[in-house]
């Protein structure tokens, strides 16, 4: 079992190395993007996992001392902790996906326009991207300008207006064509004033560092792999509950409870490191 746990440590270890390298290359990305993660939800999840680790350790003890009913109760509490963790994780993930804080090129597509674009184009065709109207005085987008913090919003083909915004700086253009004229400037000002939080549209943020999508790539890889381990944990703990109901475990035979316990503690250990590395950085 301990050799298996060692392979688990190495399994996650590769991703921790990737995290360290990415963070070394782009420290500003991690400092910025961490604000999009909800520290309170992450902290609650940490406490939930610690509590479930505690009940798991108690379950091992109750198996060793032939206490069947307390064993079942402790295993069920551990199961509840595992499921609670996944429920909170589900809310975190869906919120981020809704805000387009995702991995891959979709990170650079605005939320509302993306749905419209998907609905209105053939899957084979590239998404229609808004061409800037030079009569409005907006500078044409050059590759050099594109490498700066420009917001390009792919829009449905019929809507082709663009506005120049104070958001975008001298060479940049912000398209707020989807916003009614009266709300445009207010929207832009709010986006400028706000410190990034989970509710700020990231593409409107002038301080968005280059390559911010990398943070979310490593975030989803690491928390995703951890989430898969939690789901596996739910499976094996359920199996223990079944065995405990049948009265299989006693002071002569409690190895399954002990080993699943060890696995569950390693899942807890990984989260103990993931939490500060993603949620607690400036």
């Amino acid at each position: 079992m301990w050799l298996f746990l060692a392979t688990e440590v190495l399994f996650f270890g590769g991703l921790f190395v990737a995290y360290a390298v990415l963070r070394m290359l782009h420290p500003e990305v991690f400092a910025y993007a961490s604000h999009y993660l909800d520290t309170i939800l992450g902290g609650i999840n940490t406490l939930v996992l610690i509590a479930s680790s505690f009940t798991m350790a108690m379950a091992v003890r109750f198996a060793q001392t032939n206490k069947r009913i307390p064993l079942i109760i402790c295993l069920l509490l551990t199961l509840a902790g595992a499921m609670g963790f996944m429920v909170i994780k589900y809310f975190e993930y869906t919120h981020k996906i809704h805000e387009n804080l995702i991995m891959g090129p979709g990170f650079y597509r605005p939320v509302d326009a993306q749905e419209a674009t998907i609905a209105m184009t053939d899957p084979g065709e590239p998404a229609p991207v808004l061409k800037l109207d030079s009569s409005l005085g907006a500078p044409a987008v050059t590759p050099a300008a594109a490498s700066q913090n420009i917001i390009g919003i792919p829009l449905p083909a019929m809507d082709r207006t663009a506005v120049v915004s104070p958001l975008a700086g001298p060479s940049g253009v912000v398209d707020l064509a989807g916003t009614p004229p009266a709300e445009r400037s207010q929207y832009a000002e709010e986006a400028l004033r706000e410190v990034p939080t989970a509710d700020t549209p990231h593409l409107l943020d002038p301080k968005l560092p280059v390559n911010t999508h990398q943070f979310f790539a490593i975030y989803y890889c690491m928390t995703g792999l951890h989430g898969i381990h939690v789901i596996v944990g739910i499976g094996v703990i359920s199996w223990l509950v079944w065995g405990a109901f049948k009265g299989r475990y006693n002071s002569n035979y409690y190895t399954p409870v002990d080993l699943v316990g060890l696995y569950w503690h390693v899942v807890d250990l990984v989260w103990i490191f993931l939490f500060p590395l993603f949620y607690l950085i400036h």
């Binding site: 990170f107 998404a127 987008v141 490498s147 700066q148 420009i150 917001i151 390009g152 280059v210 999508h213």
Partner: peptide, 9 residues
């Protein structure tokens, strides 16, 4: 083609 303004390069 797919994320025209992604400042990736």
């Amino acid at each position: 083609q797919n994320a025209k303004f992604a400042p990736i390069t």
